[in-house]
Simulated scan of single mutants.
Amino acid sequence: MLARFTGAALRGLLVALVVAFPSLLLPVSAPEIATLLALVAALLTFAEYNSSYPSIVEFRSAPPLNRLRYVALLVTVLALTLIAKQRIEPTHLTALVSGLGGLLGHWTDFPYSPVRLAVLMLPPDASAATVETLRTAAGLSYVIALLTVAAFLLAVRGFGWPVAHGAFNVWTNLPLFDPTAGGDVVHRLQRDGQINTVLGILLPFAIPALIKLSSALIQPLPFTEPQTMIWLISAWAFLPASMIMRGIALMRIAGLIAQKRRRAYADADAAQAA
């Protein structure tokens, strides 16, 4: 009981820090809004992990999936905050992160790449400094997302996730999945995994196109505002990576269930033969 309460409180604090980082390091016009959002995120996380029964958070008992997601979001938000801070209060740390991001941005900014499409979200009259900042942020965040997906693939292929940490409980780790909804469980998991993977691959290309099209109908997003740039680019990189990881996880679980079925059928056939 105490261990669960402490763990839930720590997770809530860590989530609140991610939400509050841009407001803590950058000047903001309404810090009370950032404080409220951080508090709400902390309370929701605490309520989820302090409960004995799952509600909406998937893979609660299947590390390191959620830990990789958190670290990826933390690193992305912190790096983009430092990049934005470079234009306001430059330091050695902000210069280092901006230099690394600029290098990665130019490497990944080639025709039809997601980074090139992200840069094209800017209006034609955007300043050169704004274009360079967005390219730097997009390149760094996209590389972080790719490394996170690669790390999870290594956990699955190299370390046997999720069975390396014990039995996998579908009810605890997939609270929104109803195995009695109809249809074969394996086929449904494989279908959902494939859909998540395909959407995760397409979203970095689709999001900039949708934003560019919507700018013709509504007021364009203020990319010169640091908070807008940080959260939009973070979502653009993190959400597709998270969907790909979820797709990989679902297909892995489907494979484990199918493997267990084959073993059960083989044992039954052996028992009948004996």
Rank of each mutant, 00 (worst) to 15 (best):
144 I>E: 01
207 I>W: 03
247 G>A: 13
33 I>E: 01
45 T>D: 04
206 A>H: 04
9 A>D: 00
35 T>P: 00
149 V>A: 08
246 R>V: 07
44 L>I: 01
270 A>G: 09
118 A>Y: 00
21 F>S: 08
242 S>Y: 06
47 A>D: 00
117 L>P: 00
16 A>W: 00
122 L>N: 05
107 W>L: 13
165 H>G: 13
175 P>M: 08
68 L>I: 15
7 G>L: 12
165 H>V: 14
6 T>V: 13
185 V>A: 01
97 V>P: 01
47 A>V: 02
130 T>E: 14
213 L>P: 05
30 A>K: 06
112 Y>W: 04
221 L>Y: 13
94 T>I: 10
156 V>F: 03
182 G>W: 00
228 T>G: 10
22 P>R: 09
69 R>F: 04
242 S>D: 05
49 Y>S: 03
213 L>C: 07
235 A>D: 05
214 S>V: 07
123 P>N: 07
164 A>K: 05
94 T>G: 02
110 F>W: 09
247 G>Y: 06
244 I>E: 10
136 T>Q: 05
49 Y>Q: 03
75 V>S: 09
251 M>S: 15
121 M>F: 02
148 T>M: 10
19 V>Y: 08
19 V>N: 00
161 W>N: 11
19 V>P: 01
114 P>C: 07
233 I>W: 01
71 V>F: 01
144 I>K: 09
9 A>W: 02
98 S>R: 07
187 H>A: 13
51 S>R: 05
237 A>H: 13
266 A>I: 04
81 T>Q: 04
134 L>D: 01
176 L>E: 01
171 W>P: 02
8 A>T: 05
199 L>N: 04
233 I>V: 15
40 V>Q: 01
270 A>P: 00
254 A>Y: 02
106 H>R: 09
91 T>A: 08
223 F>Q: 04
175 P>T: 07
148 T>E: 07
236 W>N: 06
25 L>V: 12
83 I>D: 02
93 L>V: 15
123 P>I: 03
11 R>K: 10
95 A>F: 03
63 P>A: 11
185 V>N: 08
119 V>I: 05
255 G>Y: 07
55 S>R: 12
96 L>T: 15
100 L>Y: 10
57 V>N: 01
169 N>M: 02
234 S>V: 03
114 P>K: 10
135 R>Y: 06
165 H>C: 04
130 T>N: 04
222 P>Y: 05
42 A>G: 06
134 L>C: 03
196 N>L: 15
128 A>G: 06
250 L>V: 07
